[in-house]
């Protein structure tokens, strides 16, 4: 295989002038059996890429909603290996939809970079976003990832300087992830004008697709952010449903699908997009 599924996926979306919808859920939340069927349901509801959170005991960049998701998943000892296993299971029925693992470095470090990259790639993982691994610390890791067809996904933040944007874009592949606000996942309101300005600044350096996440909580924010970005990542708004229905796991899928579908139609009817491009 040459390259991951991410580039063809985004090329395709671009050709159709569609904005990618990327749901984030924590693998193993609220229990392991929920995850793979949920991934299929999300694709059905219009997800273009799936971000699968790898639970970690110390999720420093996450707000309370995703912290608790990690805690629920860890109550079942959902490990990085288990998450890779879920992707493998998902691939039995879905060969197209790119899957990105999102998490923290330590579980990968313990497994070993080489071993992780081989197993993840073999299972059908396409990209890896390790929140606490900036490009400065990632040199060796990037070589290992790219020789295994895994795209390293890096973050850009409102505080990222122009110099660093250049640096991040020069090593990123798949897409870059713009964190739309100063804060943790699930935090307050995002400033759409600020996002639009930053998109221009990033696009001055790169052609790589830009996904925007943190703070996308409903169809309306999804549509307005989607009008200026290549992808919207929605996390806490979905994970909230896992919390709300944690003791009735059978109901979660319906709730998550409802949120995603409303975002999908808002994105698709976002006429502003065509105009602004």
């Amino acid at each position: 295989m040459a390259g991951s599924r991410l580039k063809p996926c985004f090329d395709n979306l671009r050709a159709q002038q569609r904005t990618a919808l990327i749901p984030f859920i924590t693998a193993g939340d609220p229990k392991p059996e929920v995850t793979v069927p949920m991934m299929h349901a999300m694709v059905e509801a219009g997800a273009d890429v799936i971000e699968l959170g790898v639970p970690f005991s110390d999720p420093m960049a996450d707000g309370p909603v995703i912290q608790k998701a990690s805690e629920r998943a860890l109550a079942y000892h959902t490990s990085l290996r288990d998450v890779i296993g879920m992707v493998k299971e998902f691939r039995k029925q879905n060969e197209q939809t790119p899957v990105v693992l999102m998490g923290y470095l330590n579980p990968v470090e313990i497994m070993g970079y080489e071993k992780f990259a081989q197993e993840a790639s073999a299972a059908g993982v396409d990209g890896v976003l390790t929140v606490d691994l900036p490009p400065e610390e990632a040199e060796d890791v990037m070589d290992i990832f790219s020789s295994n067809n895994l795209d390293p996904i890096f973050l850009i933040a409102p505080t990222t300087t122009d110099d660093r944007i250049k640096k991040v874009c020069s090593v990123a592949s798949g897409f870059v992830y713009y964190v739309s606000l100063k804060g943790v996942t699930g935090a307050a309101n995002l400033d759409i004008q600020g996002v639009a300005d930053k998109m221009k600044q990033i696009r001055a350096h790169t052609d790589i697709p830009i996904g925007v996440g943190f703070g996308i909580k409903d169809a309306e924010t999804a549509a307005s952010v989607g009008s200026v970005s290549d992808a919207v990542v929605v996390g806490s708004a979905l994970v909230n449903k896992f919390e709300e229905f944690a003791d009735k796991p059978d109901n979660i899928q319906k709730e998550v699908v409802a949120v995603l579908s409303s975002m999908r139609s808002a994105l698709d009817s976002g006429m502003e997009k065509a105009a602004s491009k």
């Binding site: 400065e136 933040a157 990222t160």
Partner: peptide
């Protein structure tokens, strides 16, 4: 200069804090 003591130390944080 990048904060390493051999393989240890460094700066493993999310992007938002890098500038700070």
């Amino acid at each position: 200069t990048s904060g390493h003591f051999g393989p240890y130390g460094g700066r493993f944080v999310s992007e938002t804090l890098m500038a700070a």
